[in-house]
Design a protein around this nucleic acid. Structure first.
Length: 301
DNA sequence: AATCCGTGCAACCGCCACCTG
DNA sequence: TCAGGTGGCGGTTGCACGGAT
């Protein structure tokens, strides 16, 4: 007897998510938390399978996602981790806060692979591409020792510089992973010179303003208009990541850390890319945002 | 202006591991 | 121990978009 599919597919919607569906899912998750994905669509009033809901949430709607392109440092981490772990994208993603396995996988396939090939590195083996050619040459031209020596000399150079780069990244990674507790803020401090010491205090009104429900909650924003919808939904000033359905945009205005809704912290970047941080805790009252489905308030730390 | 083509990414599919009864 | 259910993971696909012709 074959396994039952994860969902009854008849009558279920597929394809791109609409803003309306996103709203339902967000509200449901924020209200009820993540549990039993199979039941989520039914309870949230969605004609989707649970798997689809989980993917949409983890890859796109989760507020702690960074969005935008991977930084140089993140790319290097991905390359290094891929060298160690292979295509275990979820493991790789676990080392990069705010990034999803899908995001990293896509970035690897579309950017990093090409980049490495351009650099003469085999993305699969992380060895110089010319090494393979060299081996073939060695097999085919055993007798041409003199020529081979010349080839080896040419190949050795890039390999050395590459390996030193990888070694540096590995050292960096080691120092991060060997710390007893993985601290996302520590990572952020290491990324692009970002330092929490530079974080200005932000007044509550600068982060969140009292939210009112969108005038037309049933209005159906297209997938591409989701950012507008979310701006209206919660964050008139800062909004969700402005690339909320447009990953080519790098202006990340807001992201959250920690899947635990009871302790989410807000991380805010400004438009010029300089990371500025403001942390808010859900634990003490200052600002309300009922549209988030959280009747809790925020305090600027 | 129309068409073609390459690229990037969201979403889907199928498999696997783990859990539970 | 085993079968079924569920969540998670990695590979793949299909579509939207932008640039080239």
């Amino acid at each position: 007897m074959g396994r039952q599919p994860c969902c009854v597919k008849v009558g279920l919607k597929r394809g791109p998510w609409t803003a309306d569906e996103d709203t339902k899912l967000i509200n449901f998750i924020l209200t009820n938390g993540q549990c039993c994905w199979r039941a989520v669509p039914k309870l949230a009033g969605l004609l989707r399978c649970g798997k689809s809901c989980r993917l949409r949430w983890t890859n796109y709607l989760r507020p702690d996602l960074k969005g935008g392109l991977l930084s140089e440092h993140e790319e290097q981490m991905v390359i290094d981790l891929h060298a160690q772990l292979g295509n275990r994208w979820s493991k790789i993603a676990s080392h990069l806060p705010g990034r999803t396995d899908n995001e990293i996988k896509n970035h690897w396939n579309t950017h990093i692979k090409k980049k490495l090939r351009k650099m003469g590195i085999d993305p699969l083996t992380h060895q110089p591409l010319s090494t393979t050619e060299q081996q073939q040459q060695q097999q085919e031209q055993v007798s041409k020792a003199a020529v081979k020596t010349q080839v080896l000399c040419k190949i050795k150079e890039p390999e050395t510089s590459l390996q030193s780069t990888i070694t540096e990244a590995k050292e960096e990674e080691k120092s991060m992973t060997t710390s007893p507790l993985f601290d996302p803020m520590e990572v952020m401090n290491n990324i692009d010179g970002f330092c929490t010491d530079e974080v200005p205090l932000i007044e509550p009104h600068e982060i969140l303003v009292p939210c009112s429900a969108p005038s037309n909650s049933s209005s159906s924003f297209s997938s591409c208009d989701s950012s507008k919808f979310l701006e209206e939904l919660q964050f008139p000033d800062f909004g969700w990541p402005s690339d909320y359905n447009n990953s080519s945009c790098n202006n990340n205005n807001l992201s959250l850390w920690d899947d635990d809704f009871s302790s989410w912290d807000w991380l805010i970047n400004d438009d010029d890319g300089d990371k500025k941080l403001a942390l808010a805790s859900l634990s003490s009252p200052l600002i309300q945002c009922p549209r988030m489905g959280l009747d809790q308030d925020y305090e600027i730390l």
